[in-house]
């Protein structure tokens, strides 16, 4: 189903080992432009590590990462981000001492230079766009609230909004619904379905209900390798996947 779409990201034989422990093992993985891909797998399968490799937080020991036809795995983190990759971390990380609006202004990083930003002050041309983003994640009434005073769910959404302010071609989401209430999770699923098509997303998620709500293609990782790939129904009937999840109570409880 990704055949007629342009390939955005490809990992080829990507391998990383931490002091002998191979977290990601000769992984071949590719995502087409505009796709919303879910990445699932049992604990320790290497999902978060894979996201770390794509955004530069960890470095591959061998193999290559191609983004928009460019091998990016040698770039430093900020340069990888500038090629159009945004990362939402598992533990929500926002700037707690700054207000919601100030947070969003940081996210807006099209012009990352020190000198350029020395002559830029708040209330610029981006304000309207950032207010729309705040509205999208339901933080429109909290613009001048210090981020430290937001609830956990709001903090998660703020970080998602920051990534949207950055406006990268590829968004990496690491457990975006972690710690959210059922209602908040539903709203997040709705948000992701709205992002579909405008951005390419790779979402690591444990909540299978959420995955079913948003996914078109699901990739399953196990022991650092790609185990299976397909629709939600194809995945849950795959014997290899069933075996991998054995003992953890099946895929629904992963």
């Amino acid at each position: 189903m990704t055949g007629n779409r342009e390939q955005l990201l490809a990992l080829r034989q990507a391998t990383v080992s931490f002091q002998g422990f191979v977290a990601v093992d000769r992984l071949d993985f590719s995502v087409a432009a505009g796709e919303l891909r879910c990445l699932i797998g049992p604990n320790g399968a290497g999902k978060s590590t894979t996201l770390d490799l794509i955004c530069g937080k960890s470095r591959i020991t061998s193999g290559e990462i191609i983004f928009r036809g460019e091998p990016i795995h040698t770039y430093r983190e900020f340069r990888m981000a500038r090629t159009g990759i945004g990362r939402k971390f598992q533990v929500p990380s926002v700037f707690r001492e700054l207000t919601v609006m100030e947070n969003l202004e940081i996210g807006c990083s099209r012009e990352p230079g020190v000198w350029h930003n020395l002559f830029r002050f708040s209330g610029g041309a981006d304000t309207e766009r950032l207010e729309r983003l705040a509205l999208l994640v339901g933080l429109q009434d909290e613009l001048s609230t210090q981020a430290a005073h937001l609830s956990h769910g709001q903090t998660q959404w703020l970080e998602i909004a920051l990534i949207l302010a950055q406006d990268p071609a590829l968004i990496l989401m690491d457990e975006p619904t972690a710690g959210m209430t059922a209602h908040e999770t539903n709203m997040t699923a709705e948000l992701f379905n709205r992002l579909r098509g405008q951005h390419t997303l790779i979402v690591v998620e444990h909540d299978m209900g959420f995955v079913r709500d948003i996914a078109e293609t699901i990739s399953v990782m196990h022991q650092g390798r790609l185990l299976a790939q397909g629709t939600a129904d194809e995945i849950s009937e795959d014997p290899g996947v069933r075996e991998a999840y054995l003992g953890s109570g099946g895929i629904g409880h992963a």
């Binding site: 955004c55 530069g56 981000a81 020190v114 020395l118 950055q166």
Partner: peptide, 23 residues
């Protein structure tokens, strides 16, 4: 300035700032 704001963000969460593409 925005540079000042980014510096405050660096104080709060250096890693987060880096992955927005700031050096």
């Amino acid at each position: 300035s925005k540079t000042g704001l980014i510096l405050q963000a660096v104080r709060d969460q250096e890693e987060r700032v880096r992955f927005f593409g700031y050096d």
